[in-house]
Design a protein around this nucleic acid. Structure first.
Lengths: 162, 162
DNA sequence: CGGCGTAGTTCGCTGTGCGAATTACCGGCT
DNA sequence: AGCCGGTAATTCGCACAGCGAACTACGCCG
């Protein structure tokens, strides 16, 4: 297969640089709402449901002590709350406060908006293809659910009905 | 067009989660060679050519003071060197040391290897499509060259013989 | 020469992330 | 019951990351 080089880059560089873009979006989006990217990511994970520290650590790929600190600071900001786990006295469930829930929604929405803008020049079919290809990568590599799918303002797809 | 939902995710979540993967690769790869992800990224940028602080800041999207610190620490590790700019007494050119060049090559190679493994389940045509789609996003959004291309599809490594 | 803009550094601060050590508890075993 | 290994989470000390404000030193225009 002869691919004529229209200035395209390899898949490795493409992945790295698109990741750079996404990181920048998290940073900007976070700054807009007065949270760090990490705290924003934490909020997004907790949007789905409250979570134990262990599970959070696995999801965010953080060492226990790192997570303790992150939750501490986010709690100090009034965005999350530690609740005792009724089943296990040792364990803790981290949940969004009311303010945290509100902020999480805004941060999430803004982040989605900005990220949807990245492939603005792609037509719907291309976006679909991209989502499909990246989706396979994400699944094959068992990426934790650091970002839940909420609405599909994007298009007709993702009706999680079946 | 009815596309049956095989569990695919939206393009936003796909981008976010794949970025998460790439970030993890940088972290692991860096750990393997005793550098932080940021320092590794700095090395990768400098692989192409020495660079002034201003240009580095623009490429890495860091504030001046942040970059001073990053270069300080990387210099302390013996990986980069500050050289005076012959044209401008104020300016500085940051260049790889010999050890830095060596380590950059290894870090770069290892990072490429790991990132190439991410889409292992995609056949060549799919990878090609992915590279094309992400490449357009990267170009449209003017992502700085935080990762130079030097992989096999273009021929063996960047000629450093210069 | 005077003054403005630019290139980098310094300083103080908050946040991030880790490993080792510690505390408190669960659960199985005797 | 009592013990004890494993688990959940915190604490502590450390190095790194990133920022803004203030500062130095130089280039450059007039």
């Amino acid at each position: 297969m002869v691919k004529h080089d229209d200035g395209g880059i390899g898949v490795v560089a493409a992945l790295v640089r698109s990741a750079f873009l996404v990181n920048a979006v998290y940073a900007e989006s976070g700054r807009e709402f007065g949270v760090t990217p990490q705290q924003g990511q934490l909020l997004c994970v907790l949007m789905a449901r409250p979570c134990g520290m262990g599970e959070l650590g696995a999801t965010l790929r953080l060492a226990k002590s790192s997570l303790t600190g992150l939750v501490d600071r986010t709690e100090r900001n009034g965005l999350v709350r530690r609740e005792p786990d009724p089943r296990d006295t040792r364990a803790v469930r981290v949940a969004l406060t009311e303010r945290g829930d509100e902020l999480a929604g805004e941060f999430y929405a803004e982040t989605c908006r900005r990220i949807e803008d990245l492939p603005a020049a792609l037509d719907p079919a291309d976006r679909d293809m991209l989502a499909h290809l990246l989706g396979r990568i994400v699944r094959d590599n068992k990426v934790p659910v650091v970002f839940v799918e909420a609405d599909a303002s994007n298009g007709p797809r993702t009706p999680r009905g079946g």
